[in-house]
Amino acid sequence: MFGGYGGYGGGRFEASYRCYPVSFLDKPEAERGDKIFLPPSALDRLAQLHIDYPMLFQVENRRDGRNTHCGVLEFIADEGMVYMPYWMMQNLLLQEGDVVQLRSATLPKGTFVKLQPHSADFLDITNPRAVLETTLRNFSCLTVGDTIPINYNNRRYFIDIIEAKPSDAISVIETDCNVDFAPPLDYVEPARQPPPQPVPMAAEGPAAAAGAAPAADEAAEPEQPKFLAFAGSGRRLDGKAVSESRPIAIPLPGSGRPGGSASGPASAAGSVGSGAGDGGSSAAGSAPKRPGKVFGGNRLQAKLADKASGGAGGARAPPPQPPAEKKVEEEEPKFKAFGGKGYSLKG
């Protein structure tokens, strides 16, 4: 029906009105929600039908086949007219004075809604969920396919409703509804860069590569442990300095490399044998031995010299003089055992 006259069949309100934006009523705050202004006659008819509260309506543009849902704010409009937010008129493709069809509706409480911002700037908001909750307090219902505005920090963001549960039109009054966000319409996912590939080392040829591998293994192989013989410091009973000893490196048994020379008693015996063949010399690498002193050696030399001189019938040769080192040693004071005074137990 036209001009606000509708039917009452089945307890359902239905009427036709000419639509105008809420700015005609000087109600700019109504642009932040989805509520419309109806004439007082609509209130009288709704009271007689005993419809469900809160009052929700389906608004349809039959010319273009577009529809949405809304609530009612006040019944102060002129007869035959309905005032609605301008963004709602844009969703329905309506111009000022176009005819719309209104009918009462009962919508289920929403449990889930998925939103998609038009611009990626919406993601720059510190807490978009809190801003969305504050905005939806002015809404009565949401319909899939609608575009709702959100005003924040002197800016207006537009968001599409792309999914709703349990139906395409839901009520958001006093309900706990889960909200999910889809990527913005102008969002461009950054291109993924492949990870850098390791650069293989350049080889001059197969032979060079084969020869370089054993060399690297030999360089990385740790040094075999060895036993150092005579590595300690020596001391003499008379306190004199001892010449510095040279330690001898002897490989430990079982530490030789595979295919190398054997270590152990067998190898030691072989080295001794070779040394004996060379004139009784010591094993290779051993420290040089100092000439030892023979007890009574000076006396023996004197007797031999005396016998040699007596047998020849000549004059007796003077005894050989000891070397200078021997004289120096005799001049130095020596330790004399039992050189102190004696005492008797009887006194």
Rank of each mutant, 00 (worst) to 15 (best):
G297I: 06
G292H: 08
A42T: 04
A220R: 13
V131K: 03
H69W: 06
N91V: 10
P247Y: 03
L304Q: 15
G205K: 10
H69L: 07
T68P: 00
G232W: 00
L102M: 14
G311D: 13
N153D: 15
F24H: 13
F75N: 04
R316L: 15
P323I: 09
I36S: 00
P149I: 05
A315P: 10
G260F: 08
D44R: 15
S255E: 02
A164I: 00
L107H: 02
V172W: 01
S140P: 05
Q116H: 06
D52W: 06
M81C: 13
F227P: 05
F227E: 14
L49R: 02
E244I: 07
P322F: 07
A213E: 11
N91I: 03
R316K: 14
A283E: 10
P258T: 09
P251H: 03
G273C: 09
M84P: 01
A302P: 02
I159L: 00
R246F: 09
A30M: 02
I161S: 08
A182S: 12
A15F: 05
E189I: 10
I150C: 06
Q101E: 15
V242R: 12
A269G: 12
A209W: 07
G10Q: 09
Y343S: 14
G273K: 10
E29S: 11
G297Q: 11
G3N: 10
R12F: 00
P291H: 02
E325Y: 07
L136H: 08
D34V: 04
Q193L: 13
G314K: 08
A315M: 12
Q95S: 15
G239K: 08
A207C: 06
S274K: 11
P333D: 12
R45S: 14
A337P: 07
I51R: 00
D176R: 13
P183T: 06
K289F: 01
D176Y: 09
S271T: 06
L38W: 03
N138K: 11
R45D: 14
Y5N: 11
K240F: 12
G311R: 13
K326Y: 14
V328D: 11
D180L: 11
T111S: 13
A120F: 04
K289S: 13
S167T: 11
Q95G: 14
T135F: 01
A215N: 09
A305M: 12
A249P: 04
T147F: 05
A283L: 15
A202G: 05
F57D: 01
G297E: 13
T143I: 03
I161E: 04
S286C: 06
S41R: 09
N298D: 15
F112K: 09
G285T: 02
Q193N: 10
I125R: 03
R156M: 06
G65L: 03
S281R: 14
A42V: 08
P222V: 08
G10N: 14
A47M: 14
F158D: 02
D34C: 05
M81D: 05
G279V: 02
E329K: 11
M88W: 05
S140W: 00
F57M: 04
G6A: 03
A47Y: 10
F338L: 11
A120E: 07
A241E: 15
F37N: 04
E74H: 05
